[in-house]
């Protein structure tokens, strides 16, 4: 599995469409599996943040895969996008079930979720983000990392080896785009 991810990332970066699809689906199941494992390891009342999960996923896969595994920044870009999908799925799930849910470990708090960001709104942000990604993939990635996965500007800056200010500026820019897009969609 690990070696697949490594080679899939390579292929995806060459613009291989099916490979990109396969990469996302592999990452999806990998992250899901890890979340379950962590849940089992840490016991029920403890929850795990997304950043932790992603860090562990990286360490886990990089360890299996050896030196050919891409660096953390590249990996996080892909993984964060997958995470976005998982989180939205989960929000939807929670909305439907109110209780329980398959993804206990991230245990999204339904009530707070509804107050903060509705899952439908999340889906809209996600769509807008996909649009933005087509034009400015780096900007979209920052939103994935920051908004969906909870990384700080400092962490993202460290990953990309740019200043924190640059990250913040890009994020602000992306936010303008997203807001505009969502507002426009709503008023349709």
């Amino acid at each position: 599995m690990g070696s697949t991810i490594s080679s899939l990332i390579g292929a995806a970066e060459q613009g291989d469409g099916p490979a990109t699809e396969a990469l996302f689906s592999a990452l999806h199941s990998e992250l899901h599996r890890l979340a379950k494992r962590e849940l089992a390891r840490r016991g029920a009342p403890v929850s795990l943040s997304v950043t932790t999960l992603l860090h562990e996923a990286y360490l886990d896969m990089a360890a299996r895969d050896g030196p050919s595994f891409p660096d953390q920044a590249r990996f996080m870009g892909y993984a964060a996008r997958v995470m976005r999908g998982l989180i939205i799925d989960h929000a939807r799930e929670r909305h439907a079930q109110k209780r329980g849910g398959l993804f206990e470990i991230t245990s999204l708090d339904t009530e707070v979720m509804e107050k903060a960001v509705d899952h439908r709104e999340l889906a809209q942000i996600s769509e807008a983000l996909d649009e933005l990604g087509k034009m400015e993939p780096a900007l979209a990635e920052i939103v994935d990392l920051k908004f969906f996965c909870g990384f700080s500007f400092a962490e993202i800056a460290a990953m990309r080896d740019v200043s924190e200010r640059t990250v913040q500026r890009n994020w602000e820019k992306a936010r303008i785009y997203l807001h505009r897009k969502i507002r426009a969609d709503l008023s349709l």
Binding site: P45, V46, T110, V112, M113, L122, F148, G150, E172, H179
Partner: peptide, 20 residues
């Protein structure tokens, strides 16, 4: 947007019991 804090509180997973 900056004032409103749009997208600043991410839907990051919240630990603990839901609906506190």
């Amino acid at each position: 947007l900056a004032q409103e804090g749009f997208l600043e509180q991410g839907p990051v997973p919240l630990p603990g019991a839901p609906g506190l």
